[in-house]
Computed example of a mutant assay.
Amino acid sequence: MSVELLDGGIILGFIEDDEAFNGSVQDRFAYLDTNHDGLLSYSEMLKELQFLRMIETHFGIDVKPDPEELAHVYDSLFVQFDRDSNGVVDLEEFKAETKRMRLLWRMILDSCL
């Protein structure tokens, strides 16, 4: 098993590599778009958020969040992606929000070093 550390430079390099970043985002979008209509519905994105269980774990330990609070977090995340508020997320919205989130992670990682 190997362990790799990500720092802000690695994340920024990936984001600035248009071909790699766009390919990665397009692949993930296609995977999430289960009905293949070119748009992500709330339910398509919700399945992914629930599968990742990022909110239900804390440093790898399961926690039991309040269901209403969890629903609010999922709703808020979807709204961030759905920039034109039309109830679905297209590829450009998905790409823009993914880039924004990765840049935020870069800032967080840089501030920890």
Rank of each mutant, 00 (worst) to 15 (best):
F51T: 15
L70G: 06
H72P: 03
P65Q: 05
K64I: 12
L77Q: 05
V63I: 15
K64Y: 11
D84T: 10
P65M: 05
A71G: 03
Y74T: 00
D66C: 05
E56Q: 15
D66L: 01
I55M: 06
F78I: 00
T57G: 03
D66F: 03
D62Q: 14
L77K: 09
D62W: 09
F81E: 00
L91R: 06
E68D: 12
Q80F: 05
K95M: 07
D90I: 06
G60Q: 00
S76H: 05
F51R: 15
P67F: 01
V73D: 02
T57L: 09
I61Q: 15
N86Y: 01
P65H: 04
H58K: 12
R53N: 13
S76P: 01
Y74E: 00
V63Y: 01
R83W: 04
R83K: 14
L52C: 08
F94Q: 02
D82Q: 07
G87V: 03
R53A: 13
P67A: 01
E92H: 15
H58S: 11
R83F: 07
D75L: 08
V73Q: 08
G87C: 06
F51Q: 14
V88N: 12
I61T: 15
M54N: 13
H72T: 14
E93F: 04
A71N: 07
Q80C: 11
H58C: 15
V79E: 09
N86Q: 06
P65F: 04
F59R: 12
S76R: 10
A71E: 13
L52M: 11
M54Q: 12
R83Q: 14
T57M: 10
K95L: 09
E56L: 03
N86W: 05
D90T: 06
H72V: 12
Q50A: 09
M54W: 12
D82C: 04
M54P: 04
D62S: 15
L77V: 14
V63C: 05
F78E: 03
E93C: 08
D84R: 09
S76V: 06
T57N: 10
S76W: 03
D90V: 04
P67H: 03
V63H: 02
E68N: 13
V79F: 08
I61C: 10
I55G: 02
K95A: 08
R83G: 13
D66K: 09
L52A: 10
G60L: 00
D90L: 01
F78Y: 06
S76I: 01
S85E: 11
L70W: 06
H72N: 13
E56D: 14
L77W: 01
H58Q: 13
H72D: 11
D82V: 02
Q80W: 04
L77G: 06
F94G: 00
D75P: 00
D75K: 14
D82W: 02
V63K: 03
M54K: 12
E92W: 10
E92Q: 14
D66G: 06
V73W: 03
E69T: 11
H72F: 08
L91W: 02
E92M: 13
K95E: 04
V63W: 02
E69K: 15
D90C: 08
Q50G: 05
F78M: 04
V63D: 03
F59H: 13
E56Y: 05
N86G: 08
